[in-house]
Write a protein that binds this DNA or RNA. Structure first.
Lengths: 147, 147
DNA sequence: TTAATAACAATAATTATTACTGTTTTATTA
DNA sequence: TAATAAAACAGTAATAATTATTGTTATTAA
């Protein structure tokens, strides 16, 4: 059993995340922290991100591609991952907690919750793809991918 | 544009995964493959796992804890991750594709799909916890966690 | 059967993350 | 307010997972 002591670095990391809408990686947090704390260590960033998410003051986001990301908003909500630019954004959508019940229907253990990531193209990437579609459609039929 | 050539190693990896109900990591696949191919390289395993999941013959599972896992069954379905023993198992549950619609309601881009991981305690871990609950409940009240 | 190249084994390199060590900060108490 | 204990730190080393490189072998098409 251990006690938590205040640290300026930890507070700064929490504040930094609270002020961001994207969902930065540990490395991005580190780079930005160096403005306020030129000597901050990457290990300090990792340690505090782990600690803050353990105590539920931030949330860890594992998209399955690239490094872990962190969200200053610890309240449960869903995320969208763009397969084009790899950005991660929040989704405003109704709770779908009922899917835990569905999941538990034919299951032996105890379902306590779920995480879900929606994927597709973000607004910007969707528009870019449409714009370039006309040009490329001919090429696509000639050089079709085999795999 | 590149063409796919047959390889015994790739077939063996695919067959191995098809015969498993758990969802092995690259390293587990590697260890098992060495029975058939004593000189197989870990790089070969990684390359073929990536290739097979790109062409949709297997599925990659990113639980967010530990290494990537692979599923010989590429048909969309949901997974359960036990927070006790970290095992990953399949869930038999109805499709919940409608949540893509919900997710797209207030969203600018195009939602193409989702992945979801349910978590909690598997049957074995749930029973173990119940069994040890009586003994530990007193201790828990004395040594309560602060963080 | 040869020629082109995908796939291989072996290994080096990279990326993301965690652990260690000696020093500094914070919080408690004399 | 000064002394003490321990959490947190910076700096750095180490680890785990994965990807890239290189020279060789296997597969496929001509």
């Amino acid at each position: 059993m251990t006690t938590l002591k205040y640290s300026r670095q930890r507070e700064a990391i929490k504040d930094f995340l609270a002020g961001r809408k994207d969902h930065p990686t540990a490395d991005t947090v580190y780079t930005n922290m160096r403005g306020q704390f030129p000597n901050i260590s990457l290990g300090t960033v990792y340690r505090n991100l782990a600690l803050l998410s353990e105590i539920g003051e931030i949330a860890k986001i594992s998209t399955g591609e690239g490094a872990e990301r962190f969200d200053g908003n610890p309240v449960d909500h869903y995320h969208f991952v763009c397969t084009g630019c790899h950005s991660v954004s929040d989704l405003e959508m109704p709770e779908i907690a009922h899917i835990n019940i569905l999941a538990g229907q034919n299951f032996d253990g105890e379902i306590k919750g779920h995480v879900a990531y929606f994927y597709g193209l973000c607004g910007d990437c969707a528009r870019k793809q449409k714009a370039s579609h006309a040009k490329k459609s001919k090429q696509d039929t000639i050089f079709q991918k085999i795999r």
